[in-house]
Design a protein around this nucleic acid. Structure first.
Length: 571
RNA sequence: UGCUCCGUGGUGUAAUUGGCAACACGUCUGACUCUGGAUCAGAAAAGUCCAGGUUCGAGCCCUGGCGGAGCAACCA
């Protein structure tokens, strides 16, 4: 019965966000002639981070899903903060995520002429005036959220004088800060943004696209809605902090519109992630102060950082999908992001052997000059990925913590007298070991192997609890492996009153291992190639890698129940 | 002492025009395994911020509280 009901509904019951619901309703009602047109409007003043990915997935995703279009529009109204170098990286990151804007690449600066004309128009209507006061006086007259503002003494300037002054502002006659153009709305509005907002200011810094053509530049509020209007945007999706700007957004379009069409601004919650910071200002500080190695440091929440860390675009999109869009300001757990990348890489990443902290094991009854090629499955999740040959010989490396002289209860790995399977090879038994009498460090472990237990031989009835990864000592390649931990030790580093977020920087967020031993097939890995180092985690070849010196980044570890058990016991 | 928005398991999101609060992550348990980490199965966990009201019935509607966030850049 229930099945019937669902069937009749026609669509699966996948919940949609409130924004998607609005779009569905608009489409059904035939609003905007059944068009959906969105835009993604980054300011080219920094690199995109995962918070932008959330907006990108919505803007492009909704358009894609409902047969519409999404424009890429650079919000370049402030030449002081913006640079061309960011534009290319932004485009690259959007493409990396798997979205495209065709030929619809626009700039707010494309509309400077139209915006200027519109400002002139407002002046002529008596709805804008030039104010000669300095910024601190203007701010003072704005009042406070609980107290009405007072009118500027320049509010009653004649249209002629305003026009004359505004043109001369643009001609470069006046200094920066000496005059602004303000919209005349309501100095006693309960909404601060409606108290005669500044719409044009004088800036003499050359613009990265328009050069010295302009000396006045529109403010965000005077550009955004109008650009949406010019481009025929139907749904202008932005984050919650712009909610309070919406009346202003609508007010300007009211003055401009000549038909029933008008874009609609809808706000959603911005992405916050635990153990990191997301504001461009702070990310920039981390880069400038050398707290990280650059915008693409694998610890950064930037898209280029995540990419270098080994995240796939699919995993980022999956995560975005998981958290959804609401109006609740929340902080999302990074572990969900990590889950998303594990799930994706589990299907895609070939399994390989890599020993991060090598301990030499000598198989005493194995011929010294013998080398066997062991066939190892590349990915048990995907047969089509085939198998490869891995050399096995008398001396191998295993992970140092896979051996314990005095193992605790339920330790399934190697210990004196115990047996383990070497994945894809033989079962070995630990007979003895060599320990440095001074340091107490185990230097070598001596084992015997059972030739009857070779992998693939089904006659091997012997069962052991533990299976270890290994690398043949004479064939191993040396590599550097970089392990990453959370950049901050606090869940919400920038949300602590009276504490600077930098106080919470995790000093151990990067650990570099220089003496790792990897199976020889990894010698041909190329930057951004992804692997699962069996039993350890997912790793990605770093662009610093050279054939002589491979470098790998750990994207994320595998879930480790043993480690959890151990750490619990310690508590 | 203004305006706007928000308040559902540990976390994040759901719940058609009001109809016995669902899904995912995480946690715990078990099975299986040549990855202790894959995979599979199961369980615990909220009665929806509080108090009233409307209703046969409210997380959804109304009223009043409480709590949180945002708003006073010539930033976006």
């Amino acid at each position: 019965m229930n099945g019937e009901k669902t069937k009749e509904a026609g669509e699966s019951k996948v919940p949609v966000s409130f924004i998607e619901q609005i779009i569905i309703d608009d489409l059904r009602e035939g609003k905007n002639n059944g068009r959906i047109h969105t835009r993604f409007p980054p300011e080219p003043n920094g690199y995109l981070h995962i918070g932008h990915a959330k907006a990108i997935c919505l803007d492009f995703g909704m358009a894609e899903k409902y047969g519409g279009r999404c424009n890429l529009r650079f919000d370049d109204t402030n030449p002081v903060k913006e640079e061309v170098e960011y534009i290319d990286s932004i485009k690259e990151d959007i493409h990396w995520l798997g979205f495209d804007w065709d030929n619809r690449e626009y700039y707010a600066s494309d509309y400077f002429g139209k915006l200027f004309d519109f400002a002139v128009d407002l002046i002529k209507k008596g709805l804008a005036y030039v104010d000669d006061q300095p910024s601190d006086i203007i701010a003072e007259q704005k009042g406070t959220p609980t107290q009405a503002g007072t009118e500027s003494p320049f509010i009653r300037r004649s249209v002629q004088e305003n026009l004359d002054l505004f043109y001369r502002m643009n001609e470069g006659e006046f200094e920066e800060g000496s005059r602004v153009l303000r919209a005349r709305i309501d100095m006693s509005s309960p909404n601060m943004h409606m108290r005669d907002p500044i719409i044009y200011r004088i800036i003499k810094t050359p613009h990265h696209r328009t050069g010295n053509s302009w000396n006045v530049y529109p403010m965000y509020d005077f550009a955004h809605g109008q650009c949406d209007y010019f481009e025929g945007i139907t749904h202008s999706l932005c984050t919650l902090e712009f909610e309070i700007h919406r009346p202003l957004y609508d007010w300007f379009i009211d003055q401009l519109m000549t038909s029933a069409y008008r874009p609609r601004q809808i706000e959603f919650n911005r992405l916050n992630l635990t153990y990191t910071v997301m504001s461009k200002r702070r990310l920039l500080e981390l880069v400038r102060d050398g707290k990280v190695k650059g915008w693409d440091d694998p610890r950064m929440p930037t898209l280029c950082g995540l990419r270098r860390r080994g995240y796939t675009p699919e995993s980022v999109r999956k995560f975005i999908d998981l958290i959804g869009y609401t109006k609740v300001e929340a902080i999302n757990d990074v572990s969900l992001l990590e889950h998303a990348v594990r799930e994706d890489l589990n299907l895609k990443a070939p399994r390989v052997f890599g020993v991060l902290d090598p301990l030499r094991v000598v198989i005493t009854n194995y011929p010294a000059d013998k080398v066997e090629e062991m066939e190892i499955i590349n990915n048990p999740e995907d047969e089509s990925m085939g198998s490869r040959m891995v050399p096995f010989s008398k001396e191998i490396y295993i992970e140092r913590d896979d051996f314990m002289e005095n193992p605790p209860h339920k330790f399934f790995r190697l210990a004196p007298g115990s047996e383990v399977r070497l994945k894809g090879a033989y079962i070995i038994r630990c007979e003895s070991f060599k320990k440095n009498p001074e340091s107490g460090i185990i230097e070598e472990v001596y084992c015997t192997y059972d030739p009857e237990t070779k992998s693939g031989k089904h006659l091997s009835a012997k069962k052991v609890k533990g299976t270890l990864h290994w690398v043949s000592a004479q064939h191993a390649i040396d590599a550097e492996v970089r392990l990453y931990d959370r950049l901050f030790s606090h869940e919400d580093p920038s949300g602590q009153k009276d504490r600077d977020y930098r106080e919470f920087l995790n000093p151990d967020s990067l650990k570099v291992l220089k003496n790792c031993k990897l199976e020889p097939s990894l010698g041909s890995a190329r930057p951004y190639d992804k692997f699962q180092f069996q039993r350890l985690g997912y790793f990605c070849t770093d662009p610093d890698s050279t054939p002589a010196r491979p470098v790998f980044n750990r994207t994320v570890s595998l879930r480790d129940t043993w480690a959890r058990m151990v750490s619990k016991k310690q508590e």
